[in-house]
């Protein structure tokens, strides 16, 4: 069996919340931003990462792009363990070139003192060591790939439109020819009409350059169109993962069902949406012995407060973390073992 490009196992990241006492040695309260995330990604594959805001998908994107150090867990990239390389030193790592990130807000991610040309040239200079004519040729090539006319390259970010800025951000990431591209809601800040062209560009680039994508989004329709597989996150954990088409057709986790029901349908017909009651639980010091979705879950029973459901295999490459997943829409609660 070939090694997957990205093999993430039991990845967690906690942030301290508030102060801890100077006197006690006990750890202070912690936010569990990402807990026990296990995903694999093959070469050329696209994985969609969805969930509501605050579910930890952006933190996961930052962990995977090695801007942030995990609290525990492993990130194997092309067979090599990367979690031991501290984020501070990762800039000098040979894998830096191969993992690139496209930011949510392209405007904010471009140095205001850089022209579009400078922004695209920057990683080529530092990561590939290109200079002079080679550099100019590579910048022109990356810009052309992303549909940026040469006339725009001399402009500063504030002189570009949102769509053009997004293209600069993508060109900068594509320039070093990464194997893994992490896209952190790349179209969230754009007009709907521009979103479509940017998504088309991203699909085209993946087909052309054979990159793998981790596509973070809260737009389910986008993930459905662009990704082979999808992972649904809730409060830092993956609650369902599987082939995108299958998961969207027949979601097994009640949270996935609610998400899909809440997404506007592509046919434009509005359906009554079963809204989730209340707010998500606080991610601070989550109890390890209950289902985090309990309280908002339409199927929640006593068992969900005593035992946290783990990811169980539904079908090949399809897992869900719900006690009732697999039994059709939670009709029959399974009995507690023993």
């Amino acid at each position: 069996m070939t090694i997957p490009l990205l093999d993430v196992a039991e990845l967690s990241r906690r942030f301290p919340a508030g102060r801890r006492s100077w006197l006690s040695r006990a750890p202070g309260p912690q936010v569990h931003a990402v807990s026990d995330v296990t995903i694999t990604l093959g070469r050329g594959e696209a994985l969609g990462l969805v969930g509501e805001s605050g579910c930890g998908k952006s933190t996961l994107a930052r962990l995977l792009s090695r801007l942030l150090d995990p609290s525990e867990g492993s990130i194997r990239f092309d067979g090599r363990e990367l979690s031991f390389v501290p984020a501070r030193h990762f800039a000098a790592d040979p894998a830096r070139r191969r993992i690139q990130l496209v930011f949510q807000d392209a405007g904010e991610s471009i140095n205001p003192r850089f022209t579009a040309w400078d922004a695209i040239a920057d990683p080529l200079r530092t990561l590939l060591g290109l200079r002079g004519e080679d550099l100019a040729a590579s910048v022109a090539e990356a810009a052309a790939l992303c549909g940026l006319p040469e006339a725009l390259l001399g402009r500063f970010p504030h002189q570009l439109s949102g769509g053009q800025r997004a293209r600069v951000g993508i060109a900068r990431a594509v320039g070093p020819r990464p194997d893994l591209m992490i896209l952190d809601e790349p179209t969230a800040a754009l007009d709907v009409s521009v979103q479509v062209t940017i998504l088309k560009l991203l699909a085209e680039l993946r087909a052309r350059l054979g990159m793998s994508y981790v596509f973070v989004s809260h737009d389910l329709n986008v993930v459905r169109l662009l990704c082979d597989r999808v992972a649904v996150m809730y409060l830092g954990r993956i609650v369902e993962t599987g082939p995108a088409e299958a998961v969207f057709r027949d979601p097994r986790h009640p949270y996935t069902r609610a998400l899909i029901a809440a997404a506007p349908a592509l046919d434009g017909i509005r359906r009554p949406v079963p809204l989730l009651p209340a707010e998500p639980r606080s991610p601070v010091d989550l109890s390890p012995s209950l289902c985090a979705f309990h309280g908002r879950c339409p199927d929640g029973v006593e068992r969900c407060l005593q035992e946290r459901p783990v990811l169980r295999r539904m079908e090949e490459g399809w897992e869900a973390a719900c006690h009732f997943a697999g039994s059709k829409h939670g009709a029959l609660p399974q009995t507690l073992p023993g």
């Binding site: 801007l67 140095n111 990683p123 530092t126 990561l127 951000g169």
Partner: peptide
Amino acid sequence: AGFVDAARISGHRDMSVLLRQVMPN
């Protein structure tokens, strides 16, 4: 700022981020 993260992604180390990205701003 986003561009500081972007600079790290682009392979800039701490010193370089500080002097070439933050300081000019």
